[in-house]
Amino acid sequence: MSKLLVSPSPHIHASVSTKSLMRDVVLALVPAAIVSVLFYGLGELVVLGTSIASCLVLEYLITRYLLKKDNSVGDWSAVVTGLLLALNLPASTPWWVVFIGAVVAIGVAKMTFGGLGQNVFNPALVGRVFLLVSFPTYMTNWESNGGLFGIADAFSGATPLGAIKEGLIALNAGTPGASTLSELTSQYGVSDLIFAHLGGSAGEISAIALLLGFGYLLLRKVVRPYITLSIWGTVALVSLAFSLAAPEQFTGPAFNLLTGGMILGSCFMATDYVTSPMSIKGGIIFGVGIGFITMMIRYFGSYPEGMSFAILIMNATVPLLNNWCHQRKYGRA
C-alpha cells in the first residue's frame, strides 16, 4: 500500500481562491464595460483592450524579470486593474496615454510595493490620477461619435459635475445670462443618470450597470457592503445639509450619488481588499472619510470630481485604521 499522506488539519478547503475572487470582480464589471462600448463606440474598445493587455504584459514582465518571482498573471488581479483603469478614462484617450497609465498603475503603484497584497494605494486610481495631472486635456475630453448602432447622439461637452462647476463659477462671478443651479441640474434627469448618460468616463455613465455588478459581488460574498454604504450615507447627509442650507450653491443628494465616479468608486475602488481596512469598524470610518472628502472637493475644490482623490487619501490611513480597529473577540470585553 502506498504511503499515507499525513498533514495537519483542516483537510479540506473552501472553493475560493484569489483567482476566483478576481474573476468575479471582472465579471461584475462586464455590464459597465458593455454599456460604455455601446455609448462610446470602438474607441472605448481600444482603451479597454490597451489597458488590460498592458497591465497583463507589465505584470508578467516585472514579476518574471525584475522581481524574479513566480509570475502572478494567472491570478487575474492585473485584469481587474486594467479594467478599472480603462473605466476611469475617457473613450477618446490615445492608446499611448492609456499605456502610460498602466505603467504607473502596475509598475509604480503595485509592483514597487511588492505586488498584489502589498500596495498601499489602489493601482488603477494612481494610474488615473497620474494621467489627470499629466494629461489634463486628454482626460477631460468627453466626446462621443454616437456610439455603436447610433445608440447615443453625437456628444461633446463636459461631465455633469464639470458643467455644474463651470456654471456655478460663471454664476458667482456675476456673468450676465448665467443659469442658476436649478436650471443647470434640470438638464440631467435622475432616470438618465441611473440608466446611462453621456459625459463622463466609461465607468461613470451607467449607474445601473455598475450596481448590477456590485449586486453580483454581494451575492457571491466577494465583498461586504459596509464600506459602500457608509460612503453613500455620508455623501447623502453632507449634500442634504449643504443643499438645504444654500440650495442655489450646492447640489443635492440624488445628483451627487449618481454622478462622477461615485458608484464606480464606492462599489469597486473603495472596496478593493488590499487598500481598504480589515475590520468593519475601520471600514466604516474609511467610508465616512471618503464620502466627506469627496463632497468637500466637489463643493470647494478646484476639481469638479473628488472621488479618486478621496479614496487615495483614505488609502493612506488604512495602516493606521488597521492598528486601531480590531473586531470583537470571543469572551473578551
Binding site: 499522506l5 497584497g117 470583537r328
Partner: peptide, 29 residues
C-alpha cells in the same frame, strides 16, 4: 479522502480580504 479532495492550493500573497477574520469563531485576526 482522495488527493483532489484534500489538496491545498499553492500559497500566494495575502490579499487582505479579511475572510479569515470573518470566519474565526473566536474573533481573532
Amino acid at each position: 479522502l482522495t488527493a483532489k479532495q484534500t489538496a491545498r492550493g499553492k500559497e500566494g500573497n495575502c490579499i487582505r480580504c479579511g475572510k479569515c477574520a470573518e470566519a474565526c469563531p473566536m474573533g481573532l485576526e
